[in-house]
Structures are given as structure tokens and as C-alpha cells.
Design a protein around this nucleic acid. Structure first.
Lengths: 303, 303
DNA sequence: CACGGTCATCCAAAAACCGCATCGGTCGAT
DNA sequence: ATCGACCGATGCGGTTTTTGGATGACCGTG
């Protein structure tokens, strides 16, 4: 005997019936609009009124009128129904990947040039996909990918291939960062040989393994041995040292968008021509439908 | 074969099941929370997913997880459910008269003192009842009462008693409005005799029948015949003429809250002592529950 | 490999719902 | 005053939907 008639919640069907009746002010026409006959509609409204404990419609056999409470409830009912419709729509759009949210992890270095361009492209190519950006270093990114905190990361090799898919999204050359007054500024483009036995601000093997290993390999292949005067991992710190004329530095092209007074950039010939690579990485089993649309915007720069 | 499976709308029951499942991440516990067994809950969620065309929950036999679309839909579902609950609550409150809206018609004259006091009292005594104020003359008020545009009016006699209930809400005395320099200002209180054969700004019999008839009767009973120099219906216009020293005027006490330079007020002895009455009037068959609460705040001033 | 846990499926019983026929009440025409 | 049209409420049988217990399939664990 517990649950007989204390069912204190109404159903959407009842709201729809009520709205129809309240708008038509005529049960027959309202029923027609609801594709049913008049008796069930009558009952649905009685049920709704009983659940609310409130008379919503004043019905004489001659006319149907809204009570004050009914007038107020009509507004609420319309709002609820509108909300259900829009909820269904947006959910379908999210499921189809047309809309949604992508959590993006990125390293500071990729933020200089690649990320702004990506945001621009997403804004026009997939305007309903919201991006939540989180700066984090490579190891944080792979961790966050596994826990689901981010859907996609942008980082540099080496990349842990297990469970992940990757795509190279940018490839760029190295440029030399030189302080004002450096004699190498006279040349339009430099080669690695120009750094032989000259002070060079180097990448730390721990914090910037990728750049460290790459530069080491490049110099070894070119049989050049620069004089490493410092080891840093953050590019903007390196440029600060360059400005202080501690030495030169080799940084990815994207870093030229960092403007430091008295720091000038010159192209450097390397093998291969654009050795600095940036990869997108995501879990192969990520089920976020927006991810597909996001990745579609990611075809690698080939310029 | 008509409506088998193209029923493109979900029901609240399905939302509630989904929210329970999404919060518990366990169909058994969710079912328990919904006071049902697990199979029907499973089925409701399947139905919801089928209607939306979207998988909301990723369920392996080992764990239940929200899909991205499910995460989004969960927020919407919670919002919809909250809305239904608050809609039910506010509707019940409106039906009980605890909250609601009262449309009030009032004449300009009642706005000077009575209406501000009423608003103050309503604000503390029935804070959830909203008042919509519409200034209108007496005939407009009775019309609007009949069409339902206003729930209650405030006006002066004579009152059309058919279908209406009334309550005297204010009774006030008459005061004389005198220009600076008038010799009658020397007295603290006047009698009607002080106006015999003196210029008096009179009420128009059409626009201000109540005051016109009342003053006429008062003077007749006192055997006094003032010299009517103008006939107006709006009190503030009369006071403007008083300031111009065209003559004196007799106005309800409430008008003393209109401050005009060089216009001074003095009490006038009349029979009865407070002849100016203001009535609330409403349709006896008005079904607005807030009206009762409103009228409860209306016990007449007996000070 | 057996076991416990979890969700989906099957099925009979129960509940809800629908539509038809009809009732009671009201208004307008005659 | 009476009749008929109209309208919403109600009673009732048949159908659809829902429910809950039993069962099945799957998976990770000891």
C-alpha cells in the first residue's frame, strides 16, 4: 500500500497534453493535435492536476479557461518542453561530432605559432567544437591522455606508441638566435659550421631531451663542436641569455614570434631541412565523437 | 503499424532513470534508487538511447561509463528535472495563494498615500505576491475587472454592486488648501462656514462626480454657499490654481503629500468627520488564489 | 577453472493507455 | 419551454506497454 497514489511526478506526455489544451482551449481540437481522442487527453490532464494537486484548467461544458496557476504552469511547461527538444538536438550533435568539447594538452613551445593557427582553423572549420587548452609538459600529457583529462596532446618525439595514434602536424627549421653585434648577423643564412667553437646556449638533456638530442646529432654529423655555455629547457629563457650576449642559440622557427629586443634570427641550413617536428597524439580508443572532426582540421602543414 | 517505433520523444521517467544510472554508474543501485528492479531500468535507458539515436552509457559487464554525449546529456537532464520540480512547487504555491500576481487598478487620487502604504505592507506581509499597478479612472476599472485585466480596483463611490465585492479601505477627512496670505491660515482648523461667499475651486461634476456631489451635499447641509470659480477634476491641477491664489480648495487629506510652494493645508470640520472614502473592489467570482492573501492585507485603516 | 558480479534478454503477469459509447450539463435556436 | 448541438467527464473492453523474476552472456578474480 505504499506507492499507490503518492506518485508525485508528472510525465512529459502530460505536459504536452496540457500545453495543447491550454493553447486550443478546447479538448477535442487539442486531442486532434496530439493524435489521440478526447477521453485520454482529458485523463492525462486530470492526472497532471492530481499530481500537482492544482486545478490548471477551468472547464465548463461550454468553455475552457486557464486558472491563474494554470497560466503560470503553462509558461513552465512550455519552457520544459523546449528544453527537452534542445537537449535532444544538442546531444545528437555532440554524438555526431558536429559539436562538443576537446581537451587539448600542449607544450609551451607549440603555443608560439602552431596553436594560434590551429585555433583559427578550428574557429572556421568546426565552430561548434570548444577547445579547452591546458599547458603541460610531454610526460604530463601522456598521463593525462591515459586518465582522460585531455583528448589530444601536442608534443615532440620520442612518442610512446602504445595505445596512442599520432600525426605529424608541423615540421619546421632551426633558426639561430644572435645578440646584436654578433658578426654572424652579416650573413643571410648560416650553416652549422658557423657555430664551431663559438659559445652556444644548449638544451638541457632532461627538460628538453628532444632538442638536446637533435642538436647533438646534427653537430656530430656536421663534425662541429660548439662551446656549450649553458643548458636550459625553456626557449624564452634561452633567448633572454642571448639578449645578454652570453652566446647564440638554435631554436625552432616558431620561436621567432617571441620578440626580444637585441635578439635577431637567421636561418640555419640543416639536414634534413626542417628537423623540428611536432606531433598530435591521442588515444586510439578515444570515443569522443568531436575528436574526429578535430583531427580533420589537423592535416599537416606542407608549406 | 501506425506509431510503432517512430515515437520521437522521450519521457521524464527515462531521464530520471538515466540520471540515476549516470550518477551511480551501476544499474542495480540505480534501480534500487528508483524503486524498481534492474531490467526495467535497463530498458528505459535503452529506450532513451534509441529515441535520441545516441549511446549515452558505455556498459561492459564490468563497468559503466558515460560517453561524451552522455556527459552532456546528463547536465541537460538534471536541468530539466530540476525545472520540473521547481515548476511543480511554484505552481502549487500560486494555487495556494502564497505566491502569484495581482493586477491592481487605482485612481490617481489613491496613489498619493494609500497605495504607497499598501505596497509597503504587501512587501512584508505577502512578499511573493507581485503587484502590477495600472492607473485608470473608475469606469475603466469596472470594465477591466469584468474583462479580467485587473483583479482588484481602488476607487471611490458610487460603486456598481453587481458581481462585485467591496471593502472600505480608507476613510479620510477634508483639508482646505489655501494660498499664502489667505487670512484663514491664522486658524488651526476651519469649518465649512469659513468658505461662505469666498472663491472656491470646485470639482467637475463629470470627471470627479464623487467629490462634486459630496461637497455639494456638505455645503447644502451646512447652509453655506461658496463662490465656485473653477471646476476641475484633478487634484494637482486644483492645487496649482490655489497657488495662483485663484481661490481655496477642499481636498482629501492624502493630497497633503503633494507639496506645492505657497499652498498650505488646514483641517476642516465636516460631518461626518472623515467623509472621503476609498473602496477596494473585486469580482466575487475571481478565482485568483493570490487575491485572498492580498485582501488579507487590506483591513481598513482605523486610525 | 570455478566463482561472483554485472548488464541484457526472455516471458508471464500487471498496469497503463486508448478508443468507443455514453452521460450530464450548457447554450442557442425554434 | 423544448429540442438539438456541443463539450468535457466517465465506464468499459481490448490492446499496448511496463514490470520483475529467472536466465543468459560476459568478464575479471582468486
Amino acid at each position: 500500500m505504499t506507492g499507490a497514489s503518492f506518485w508525485s511526478q508528472f510525465e512529459l506526455r502530460q505536459l504536452r497534453c496540457f500545453v495543447a489544451a491550454a493553447e486550443e482551449l478546447h479538448f477535442g481540437r487539442a486531442a486532434q493535435r496530439m493524435n489521440m481522442t478526447q477521453p485520454p487527453l482529458s485523463r492525462q490532464i486530470q492526472l497532471l492536476e492530481h499530481v500537482l494537486g492544482v486545478k490548471l484548467l477551468d472547464r465548463t461544458s461550454r468553455a475552457v479557461k486557464l486558472t491563474p496557476a494554470g497560466r503560470a504552469f503553462l509558461l513552465e511547461a512550455r519552457r520544459i518542453i523546449r528544453l527537452t527538444e534542445s537537449a535532444a538536438m544538442t546531444t545528437r550533435r555532440i554524438a555526431s561530432g558536429e559539436a562538443g568539447t576537446i581537451n587539448v594538452g600542449f607544450t609551451a613551445a607549440s603555443g608560439y605559432r602552431f596553436l594560434p593557427r590551429l585555433l583559427l582553423r578550428m574557429g572556421t572549420g568546426a565552430p561548434n567544437i570548444a577547445l579547452v587548452l591546458k599547458e603541460m609538459v610531454s610526460t604530463e600529457q601522456t598521463e593525462s591522455l591515459l586518465t582522460g583529462r585531455i583528448d589530444v596532446g601536442f608534443l615532440r618525439p620520442p612518442i610512446d606508441r602504445g595505445e596512442f595514434s599520432t600525426l605529424r602536424v608541423a615540421r619546421e627549421g632551426l633558426v639561430a638566435a644572435l645578440p646584436s653585434g654578433d658578426e654572424r648577423l652579416a650573413k643571410a643564412a648560416l650553416t652549422l659550421a658557423d657555430f664551431d667553437k663559438k659559445p652556444l646556449i644548449m638544451y638541457a638533456p632532461e627538460g628538453a631531451r628532444y632538442f638536446h638530442d637533435m642538436l647533438t646529432a646534427q653537430f656530430e654529423a656536421a663534425d662541429v663542436t660548439p662551446q656549450a655555455v649553458q643548458s636550459l629547457s625553456q626557449i624564452h629563457s634561452m633567448l633572454a641569455l642571448v639578449r645578454a650576449a652570453i652566446g647564440a642559440a638554435l631554436v625552432p622557427e616558431a620561436a621567432t614570434s617571441l620578440h626580444f629586443d637585441d635578439v635577431h634570427f637567421r636561418r640555419v641550413e640543416t639536414i634534413p631541412a626542417r628537423p623540428v617536428e611536432l606531433f598530435a597524439i591521442w588515444r586510439s580508443d578515444n570515443d569522443n565523437p568531436a575528436l574526429t572532426a578535430f583531427l580533420d582540421q589537423l592535416h599537416p602543414d606542407e608549406d
